[in-house]
């Protein structure tokens, strides 16, 4: 739950994702250091000191990483596009557009992600005969598009009203003003929030393991069914996710710091 600060002090509260350590927050950065030190130490101990069976498990599980990253990256891209239109729909002056965007957001918010994922996956499979990978990416995009829409809406509304007025007064159309003036400024302030969503998405992408995609978790489950080493395997799976997530959190925080400095 990291509150992300934009220029001028307006806050966009993001309700999902990792705790982002920024330089200004000593408490978070300390807990980040302790956690990543623990995670890496634990992983290295298991892999190089205990070795068997952990080195074997790690080699199996890590093969799922490209798929985990692929699904995450694809779904983030999809959800940004969907989120842009949802956010614009929410603030549009047309009542119908407001309703469509609003109902979509309410629907998605009201259904657990796992249930949505399974439902959309099977619904897509029934009508379009999609492969597992594109189906998973589309399903996650639809789920996250709603939250991304809220980020876009908040970001657009954080731009002072005078910007739109100045653009209109110069003779631009509403569309031009949005595209040339409002959205470029919006993108800048929501990039940290999108980074945060990326981290949340990476974790939630583990849900695709239930629809037969061989991501990190799925590889682990398959390994368990072969070897019955459940505790050992899931310990490695958890540590791998933890290390990836912590590193990404740090990257997002650094990016945010840099952007603030350029103000």
């Amino acid at each position: 739950m990291a509150p992300l600060e934009k220029q001028g002090g307006t806050r966009i509260d993001v309700t999902d994702g990792a705790l982002l350590p920024t330089r200004g927050d000593g408490r978070i950065i300390d807990s980040w250091r302790i956690t990543i030190a623990f995670a890496i130490l634990a992983l290295l101990t298991l892999l190089f000191i205990t070795k068997d069976p952990y080195d074997q498990i790690f080699r199996v599980v890590i093969k799922g990483a490209p798929l985990t990253f692929g699904v995450t990256a694809g779904a983030i891209l999809g959800s940004i596009i969907l989120g842009l239109f949802t956010g614009l729909g929410q603030i549009a002056r047309g009542r119908v557009l407001n309703l469509i965007a609003g109902v979509y957001v309410e629907l998605i918010r009201g259904i657990p992600l796992l249930v949505q994922l399974i439902f959309i996956y099977f619904a897509l499979g029934k009508f379009f005969h999609l492969d597992g990978l594109p189906a998973a990416i589309i399903a996650l995009s639809i789920c996250y598009g709603a939250y991304m829409g809220e980020i876009f809406r908040a970001g657009i509304q954080a731009i002072p009203k005078g910007q739109m007025e100045a653009a209109l007064a110069l003779g631009m159309t509403r569309g031009q003003a949005m595209r040339l003036i409002i959205l470029p400024q919006t993108m800048k302030i929501i990039i940290p929030a999108i980074g945060n969503e990326f981290i949340a998405m990476l974790k939630d992408s583990s849900l695709v393991s239930v629809i037969a995609l061989r991501d990190i978790l799925r590889r682990g489950r398959e390994h368990v069914s072969r070897t019955f080493l459940s505790l050992e395997t899931y310990a490695v799976v958890a540590l791998v996710y933890l290390v990836i997530t912590l590193i990404l959190s740090k990257m997002v925080a650094t990016m945010e710091d840099r952007m603030n400095k350029h103000e």
Partner: peptide, 17 residues
């Protein structure tokens, strides 16, 4: 009409980007 009228605002409203 907007092309024919220039407006200057109290808060400038320059485009910061």
């Amino acid at each position: 009409i907007r092309e024919e009228t220039g407006m200057v605002f109290q808060d400038f409203n320059l485009f910061p980007h």
